[in-house]
Amino acid sequence: MSPVDAHARGSAVLMVSEVAVRFGGVAALRDVSLSVQPATVTGLIGPNGAGKTTLFNVISGLQAPDRGSVHLFDTDVTAMKPHRRARLGLARTFQRLELFGSLTAGENVQVGLESAVKWWEWRHLSRSFPWKRRAARPGDAAPDGDGPSGLGSVAAATSDRLLDGVGLEGLGHQQASAMPTGLARMVELARALAIGPKLLLLDEPGSGLDEAESKALGDLLVKLAAGGMAVLLVEHDMELVMGISDYIYVLDFGDVIASGTPEEIRRDPMVQAAYLGAMPDDPGSEGATVTEGIGAGTGGSPGIEPGGDR
C-alpha cells in the first residue's frame, strides 16, 4: 500500500502527487506523493539533500515540477503563482532566514496581516490621513476591524498579539535585521501565521534555537494544530519532530522511503540506516530502546538528545 493510500483519507489540505524535479543530471525529487490532513502536524524528515526544501519550493510555487501535480484545499495549484497560493491559505518559512530586514519585527508581521488588502483602494490610502488615523500603539485594545480607519490599529494590535504568541513580547519596534537568529526565526513564524494560513510549511524552524526555545516552539505548533491548522514540518531535531508529529514521511534521494507514525518510523530499519543512525550491535531488533546512538538519551529517540539527562 502506498503511503498516499494509507494517509489520504478524508479531505486532505495538501495533496502532492508524483512530483518529480530534476536539476541537470540530478533527480532532486522522483515521483513523490504525500498528503497532509487538517489539524495535524506532519513531519518530513530525511538526510541532507534528500529533497525536502525542493519539495517545499514546489508546494509554495517557487519551483515548477517537471512532472506531477500539487493540490491545495482541493484546488489544482500546479501552475499557480506563489502569491496566489498564499492567498488560498498557504504560508511558509525558509531554511535560511528571509525577513524584511529594513522593517521592524512588528511591521514584518503587519505586511503579512495586510497581504489581502489592496493598497490602491481609497479607504486604505486615506488611512494615513492624520485625522483618520487612530493611534496604533502596542497595548491598545483591538477595536472592531470593520471600519476602514480601524484597520491600522487592528493590524498593529494583532501584530503585537502574534509577536507575543511566539515569545517576542515588546520587541515589535526592533529592526528585524538587528535581531539574532533565534528571535528572527520567531518573527518569520509570526509573519507566516499572520496571513491566517490553513497550511503552514516550516523549513527547519528549530535550527538556531536553543533548547528552551525549541521546546516552546514544539508546544506552539501542537496548539496551532489543535486549533485546526495543518503543519508540515521539516526538521533535523528528532526530539522535536518525533515529539509533536502525528504522521511522518521520510525522504531519501528524492524518494519517499517510509511513512507512518513516529513510533513506526523510529523502528523502521531503512530509516535508521539512511537517516537516524542504526544501532551498532543489533539493527532492526523489534522494540529495542535505542540508547547506543551518538548522544542518545533515554527517551528512545535515537537522534540527538538535547538536555544533559544522562
Partner: peptide, 29 residues
C-alpha cells in the same frame, strides 16, 4: 509621505528586502 506610512510603503521596503518572502505571504512582486 502618506504612501510611505501606508501599507504600500511597508510593501515597497519589503519587496526590496526579500522577494521570495514577499511572494509567499501572498503579495505580487
Amino acid at each position: 509621505l502618506a504612501m510611505r506610512r501606508s501599507l504600500f510603503g511597508r510593501r515597497l521596503l519589503a519587496v526590496n528586502d526579500s522577494p521570495a518572502a514577499y511572494a509567499t505571504v501572498g503579495l505580487n512582486i
